[in-house]
Design a protein around this nucleic acid. Structure first.
Lengths: 231, 231
DNA sequence: TCAAAAGTGTTTCGTTTACACCCATGA
DNA sequence: TCATGGGTGTAAACGAAACACTTTTGA
């Protein structure tokens, strides 16, 4: 933090990789159709320049709300991309965030004049502007490891969910088969799920009990040095 | 990454938390005595504004070399601090880095006209400028957790080190007693240490064999999905 | 021969893994 | 009664934790 020899000319932006999960589908990422150059008409991560009078954290939240109508349940800083030539116009340093939402609680702004927000399966992403592909890869990697040692996955599920949703979520994100019995035993051993009196209605087969995640209890345990972990 | 409505006026800086370790002493942090306002004469993390034609990663390296004559063995991005009011002069967003060096391989620029760099025990830090205290705390937390699942600690030791140095390092950083036998068994089981023919000369007691860390083997194992872990 | 640090094995305990059948529901 | 997904227990294998004495050196 020294005074500049000559005036610095770098812009500060934010970009967000927002994951959504629809049961029985892939993991999805939120993209915005650009309505200005460069990459006009192409897809890009939601984001934009930070305003002078807002924190960087606030900037992402604002952009997400403006561009897609979304207020993520979970949002954390991912990594700052600061190499040269990221943006063909200016030098732009971009602070990337990783967010999680349950898409059924968030109606997207679709087909408005200005912007179009849309979910894309991570297995069928269109090509994206700037270095956003790298950012997405970084986010995916982080999500895959983080979900194994912090109970962040619940942010992708409904408030009340059948156990199988959780199972499918982990299978999808981590990308490998899990032993249903061992997985359930492990999760249940933490005592972080509350059983509701409701059951899953749709689908065939025996209806599953619905659970909620006990966020308060988790915070409490966490303060006592508890570590959530799924192998 | 949208075009600005009015011109953005935010500076981008880097700050580095560089840890050094002297055997039998505390963990140390590198601070620089400021020779300009604000906080002139006070201590601060090494760092400064990013130049227009260098990447953010390069900016930290340059600043560290200019301000302290140091080229860290390990350096990674820590977190970006982007709240308002961090710097009394301008709006500054700062990308913080965490670095590790072996101080005996790095002579500091001390008492030069321009700058003075000095090691401080993390247990006896002076008060530091800006929000650097927060940055240091973030770095310490990261170091404490990361050293337990990545073999980064070797960057703090001599090229050849007795096993006891490693033991003390972990005791110091993690801040709790370790079982010498179990610790040695665990480390040795990874087969990442090469035994040299040399022994530790100084000190009393039975001389310990010196080891080197096999970086190549670690990289190889890592690619095969191996995870280093110390509980 | 004493003080100081290095070097070393075994048992116990808890956790992880592997594995398959019955249950509840709607069609 | 059949198809579909929900719900459950146990034994074997493995890794973590607890624990103390002998060795080598220099003073």
């Amino acid at each position: 933090m020294e005074s500049p020899k000559k005036l610095q000319d770098i812009k500060v932006a934010v970009d967000a990789v927002i994951f959504g999960y629809f049961d029985k589908k892939d993991l999805q990422i939120l993209l915005i159709k650009r309505n200005i150059e460069p990459f006009k008409g192409g897809w890009a991560l939601p984001g934009g320049l930070v305003l002078d009078d807002e924190s960087v954290d606030d900037a992402v939240k604002r952009e997400l709300y403006e561009e897609a109508g979304i207020k993520p349940d979970f949002l954390e800083q991912l990594y700052t991309f600061g190499s040269l030539g990221r943006d063909p116009r200016n030098r732009v340093v971009s602070v990337a965030y990783l967010g999680l939402v349950n898409p059924s609680y968030h109606e997207l702004f679709a087909d408005s004049d200005a912007e179009e927000a849309q979910w894309f399966s991570i297995n069928r992403l269109p090509s994206v502007a700037f270095d956003h592909k790298t950012i997405i890869e970084t986010a995916l990697k982080r999500l895959r490891t983080k979900i194994q040692y912090q109970p962040i996955g619940f942010n992708l599920l409904n408030e009340e969910f059948p156990f199988s949703d959780l199972e499918n979520l982990y299978k999808t994100i981590v990308g490998q088969e899990i032993d249903r019995r061992n997985f359930r035993k492990k999760i249940m051993s933490y005592g972080l799920l509350n059983e509701t009196n409701n059951v899953k209605k749709e689908g065939s087969g025996r209806p599953g009990k619905l659970f909620t995640f006990n966020k308060e209890k988790y915070k409490e345990l966490e303060e006592q040095g508890f570590y959530f972990e799924i192998k």
